[in-house]
Write a protein that binds this DNA or RNA. Structure first.
Lengths: 337, 337
DNA sequence: GCTGTTATTGAAAACGATTACAGTGACGTT
DNA sequence: AACGTCACTGTAATCGTTTTCAATAACAGC
């Protein structure tokens, strides 16, 4: 049915080797080259990539395993990875794990069966802990999350510094009771909590950290609890909250709106990820902007460099975020006297 | 280096055929099966998918070509497609075309070289017009965009009806000067414009449609033009605008905010795609919610059905959207007497 | 004991490409 | 004239599987 290199060779009256050389790069006389190209066009021949990969032992494929492509951070990263990959003539296999270690294990197995050239991976804490023992025979670059173990190259945000910057900004704007809201599954949240905690202490403030499952609902419920106390003047309610990711941030905004309260009048907000909508909500939300495209591109670079030099020591690329200040953290005194 | 089925066979003292049968499904005695499984575990053997695909002539791969994965609509669809694919033991190759016909052509070629089992494709109008002549030898399901030609299965929203519903809603709320803002590349926009136009005429209103490139900036600039006239009481400015996709909608919101105007007081808004942020912006934005997950799932279903019955007549699955009413289309009389 | 059946098993032929190797002229050198 | 070199070109091995086909053994029926 489908036309193979042999059919092309026959039609052009040459050997398969010659056809292969025309398609790839080898010495072929102009006359034969023309005949072959004509035969290729006439037959509509397309090389079979499975056969090519099998024979050449190069899959030209890189794996990308993230928790959920619907998370805009990973969407942007994946786009950067795919652009870089296709530019280098490689394909990408994208997998969503939903933070489920079983699925992570299954996809790691898949990566081995695909004989991927390399893998870019945002693992859960659980998988990260036993990644050393997975026996992967291709280079891995971790993104977004990474452990202290220097076994793998990685690209991460400077989470400590970013969280500290948000706390510092809120402090400078006059806020003192600054709560922190964090997801309870990723190492990212752990690091951001670290930065939050250190900065609070450094400013002589009392940390007040809450950990919730990484869903908007959970954040909304948590914050709804605080806000219910608003009628009670005696209650000590946070004046501001630092939120460790955009999904939780969305939940917090929902809770505030549902209670008919105002930002930042009743609660100041600062979060992570400069998604398009953060500019449009209320007075605009102050966020840390991650260099998402750079993170994907840097991961690909690390991967390519490691492929060239497998034995160089591993590196951790730490990129810093930018604090985008908007109305959600307006100075306290401008609206409370 | 990497362990092959031959190594496993040798270690277990059996033939490669037996190993293959253990891994797949074939008659193998319990004794040998145990020996093979032990050898597999001991060697850490992983079958080579390229070899398997080459030999079995089944790629177990489906292609997914969209314009940009960062468009939340496609993000959600892709997630649905991937879930369904992995459930069926298949892989997905995801490609972003940026609405560029050259890239579409290149990725179509790639799909042929990968010998994909099937393709799910959101083509530009240009590519759609010559898709018949592409000579693809695998089934294709079109999503989001589709022509009248019944050559391919497709899954689309009932765009005419949805746009008409928005116009009808705006009309019912008391608005009369209702502008329409559409992207100028996709068939989707064409259909939505059709629904808009018909509904306007049906309500005895004068259509006022503008077509812009599908970027937030373009929409923002367009609307900024209208709003500049606000000081001029003689100018006939739209009271409301129906926007044909969420990216443009974002641009419109930006323009209104930048001019310090209010929604819906100065301009009522209705758009497409119920993204999370539309609930949080201003008074909430009225939108048509597309059944995104269903669209992806339906596309996979059509694909699987066609694989089973290649000759059945093509089908077009038309799903209808839901109108989610929010504050951006509050009744005109509530704020203007 | 001979034959037919059943259940396993292995040998070997694909699948469709790349590539090492050898062969063939043509041509220039000595 | 003999020989080395150069530039192509074809033959055949190979990548790691699956699958066809034949071979073998065990066992029942006669």
């Amino acid at each position: 049915m489908t036309v193979s290199i042999k059919d092309v060779a026959q039609k052009a009256g040459v050997s398969v080797a010659t056809v292969s050389r025309v398609l790839g790069s080898g010495p072929v006389s102009d006359a034969l080259r023309a005949r072959v190209e004509e035969a290729v066009a006439a037959t509509g021949y397309r090389p079979n990539l499975s056969a090519r990969r099998l024979r050449s032992q190069h899959s030209q494929t890189i794996g990308l395993i993230v928790s959920d492509i619907r998370n805009p951070f990973f969407t942007a990263v994946s786009r950067a990875v795919e652009d870089a990959a296709f530019q280098a003539g490689m394909r990408v296999i994208l997998c969503n794990t939903d933070e489920n270690p079983d699925r992570e294990a299954m996809y790691l197995r898949l990566m081995q069966e695909e004989r991927v050239t390399g893998l870019i991976f945002a693992p859960t804490r659980a998988t990260l802990a036993r990644l050393d023992r997975a026996g992967l025979d291709f280079p891995v670059v971790l993104i977004d999350r990474s452990g202290p173990s220097g076994l793998y190259d990685s690209v991460v945000l400077d989470n400590q510094q970013a969280a500290a910057a948000l706390v510092g900004h809120l402090h400078a704007q006059g806020y003192r009771r600054i709560a922190g809201l964090f997801g309870n599954t990723s190492t990212t949240a752990v690091e951001r909590h670290g930065g939050y905690h250190a900065a609070m202490v450094a400013h002589g403030l009392t940390p007040d950290a809450r950990f919730v499952p990484p869903y908007a609902d959970a954040a909304e419920a948590e914050v709804a609890g605080w806000l219910a106390d608003i009628q009670n003047p005696g209650a000590v309610r946070p004046e501001a909250v630092m939120v460790s990711n955009s999904l939780l941030l969305m939940g917090v905004v929902k809770a505030v709106r549902k209670h008919g309260l105002s930002i930042p009048g009743d609660l100041a907000l600062a979060g992570f990820d400069n998604e398009a909508w953060t500019e449009l909500v209320g007075p605009g939300l102050t966020v840390i902007e991650q260099p998402v495209h750079e993170i994907g591109a840097a991961a690909m670079n690390l991967l390519f460099e490691r492929l060239e030099a497998p034995d160089r020591p591993t590196r951790k690329v730490v990129l810093s975020g930018t604090c985008v200040v908007r109305g959600s953290t307006a100075p306290l005194e401008t609206f409370r006297v």
